[in-house]
Amino acid sequence: MKKSVKIIFLILLICVSCTNSDKQKSTTKEKRYLCGFSNDSLKIRTEYTLTKTITDSIIKFDYSSHTDSLRDFNVEFKKHKNKLVFTQNEYEKSEINRFKNNRISIKHFDSYTFIKPEIDGMSPVLFNENYGVLAIGNPLGPSAIFLKKKEEFELGDKILDKL
């Protein structure tokens, strides 16, 4: 009898934990348009689908290119540590170079930089947890800006000034 009570209790515990994890997770999809800038001129325009998955401790942003799957990438935001993980590198929030534009997002974008700097690394990253990645600086190649609308491309210069 005790053994069957333990088994029932274990099954209930597993069911409750599975139910709670489903409640803690939500997923949304949005469009983003990549515009790549090199030497201050627009070089690349590509459409992406952003899939945003929210859990208690992490927000995951998956960017899928509509034209080239080699350009797909993901970013994880660790809420409690306030850090980004992007291409296996950790970034920390910097108190300088914040960006705010109400046409793009009500919330400001923080600048995130490498915890362990690399000469050829992509940094800084302008990011907020509602929008995701706004821009990625690249000192050795084109910088990337991700916008919701093609009409916002004219904001590229203002965004690039913060990188």
Score class of each variant (00 low, 15 high):
147 L>M: 06
71 R>N: 14
98 R>Q: 13
17 S>E: 11
23 K>V: 12
52 K>E: 05
72 D>E: 02
132 G>E: 10
138 N>S: 11
45 R>F: 12
104 I>E: 07
111 S>F: 02
47 E>R: 12
38 S>A: 08
73 F>P: 15
38 S>I: 12
162 K>H: 13
22 D>K: 11
129 E>W: 01
89 N>W: 08
112 Y>I: 00
152 E>W: 15
103 R>E: 12
26 S>E: 04
24 Q>Y: 04
30 E>Y: 07
42 L>H: 05
12 L>R: 00
158 K>H: 08
125 V>W: 03
86 F>G: 02
131 Y>D: 01
30 E>D: 04
4 S>G: 09
121 G>S: 02
118 E>M: 08
103 R>P: 02
155 L>N: 05
21 S>C: 11
121 G>F: 02
47 E>N: 13
156 G>P: 02
132 G>N: 01
123 S>N: 11
23 K>S: 13
71 R>S: 14
106 I>R: 11
17 S>W: 08
31 K>A: 14
113 T>G: 08
29 K>G: 12
163 L>R: 01
145 I>C: 10
12 L>W: 05
84 L>Y: 05
99 F>C: 06
79 K>P: 00
126 L>P: 15
138 N>D: 09
46 T>E: 12
75 V>P: 00
102 N>W: 15
30 E>W: 03
86 F>M: 04
142 P>V: 10
149 K>F: 04
8 I>S: 09
146 F>Y: 12
142 P>L: 15
110 D>K: 03
35 C>E: 10
98 R>F: 14
113 T>E: 12
134 L>H: 00
147 L>P: 09
126 L>K: 00
122 M>S: 11
66 H>C: 05
19 T>E: 13
54 I>C: 00
46 T>V: 03
138 N>C: 02
117 P>N: 00
106 I>H: 14
142 P>R: 05
1 M>L: 11
133 V>K: 01
54 I>G: 03
152 E>F: 11
67 T>N: 14
155 L>Y: 13
149 K>E: 08
62 D>S: 04
81 K>E: 10
20 N>F: 14
72 D>T: 01
121 G>P: 04
111 S>Q: 00
50 L>D: 03
147 L>S: 03
35 C>F: 10
153 F>L: 15
139 P>C: 00
147 L>W: 02
147 L>R: 00
109 F>R: 00
43 K>E: 14
136 I>K: 05
39 N>Q: 06
77 F>H: 08
72 D>Q: 03
76 E>G: 03
140 L>N: 15
2 K>M: 09
142 P>S: 15
93 K>H: 12
137 G>W: 10
53 T>Y: 06
33 Y>D: 00
103 R>N: 12
80 H>F: 13
31 K>W: 07
130 N>L: 08
67 T>Q: 13
20 N>K: 13
22 D>R: 15
110 D>I: 03
85 V>S: 14
129 E>S: 13
105 S>E: 04
88 Q>H: 12
159 I>G: 01
54 I>T: 13
143 S>F: 05
124 P>C: 06
117 P>C: 07
64 S>A: 05
124 P>M: 04
68 D>Y: 07
147 L>H: 03
118 E>P: 03
136 I>H: 08
103 R>H: 15
88 Q>S: 06
21 S>L: 14
142 P>I: 09
144 A>N: 11
47 E>F: 07
50 L>T: 07
61 F>D: 03
88 Q>F: 09
162 K>W: 11
98 R>W: 10
82 N>P: 03
35 C>D: 04
68 D>W: 07
